[in-house]
């Protein structure tokens, strides 16, 4: 019994080492998968936030352009401008590694921005422009659709890479 103790120990150590490496490898891989899943969840949450803010902006713009200049203008202008910029900043976070997607996001955000803030936006003498609403709603839907589409096209980010 135990006539070849060094060989036996060698087997035990090799088994332990193999077990340790396999366990470590699995833990490392699981952590990376979890990290990647968290990133994907974060991207989805950002897209959902963009869509919600876009709806908010369209509603604020409706309030703004349905009436003539009034005391609430400054409040609405600030909220509209800040929210549009927030949409833009969130897009950078989602599409920072995909130049084409970011460019497309910028294009549709700028179109919405232009629809809302061109012309007499910010003027104390402005008139109501309810006719703008169709364009604003149309552009806001394009933003929502584009964000969802570009998000679907985005490759998962594994191990810190695209």
């Amino acid at each position: 019994m135990f006539t070849d103790i060094p060989a036996f120990l060698e087997t035990v150590i090799a088994s332990a080492l193999g077990f340790f490496i396999a366990g470590f490898g699995k833990a490392w891989f699981d952590a990376k998968i979890k990290q990647a899943n968290n990133l994907e969840d974060g991207r989805d949450a950002d897209v959902d936030e963009i869509i919600q803010i876009t709806k908010d902006v369209a509603a604020l713009a409706e309030t703004y352009w349905f009436s003539v200049a009034n005391d609430d203008d400054l409040n609405l202008q600030s909220r509209i401008t800040t929210k549009i910029n927030h949409i833009s900043a969130l897009s950078v976070g989602i599409f920072e590694n995909d130049e084409d997607a970011l460019s497309e996001a910028y294009r549709v955000i700028s179109a919405l921005d232009t629809a809302i803030t061109h012309g007499d936006f910010g003027s104390k003498l402005r008139q109501a422009e309810p006719r703008r609403l169709t364009e604003i709603l149309s552009k806001s839907m394009v933003v929502e659709r584009t964000m969802r589409t570009q998000r679907r096209k985005l490759s998962p980010r594994w191990f810190g890479m695209i």
Partner: peptide, 10 residues
């Protein structure tokens, strides 16, 4: 800035 309205930049 919080943002720039098109009317200002234009």
């Amino acid at each position: 800035a919080p943002g720039y309205p098109v009317s200002f930049l234009e």
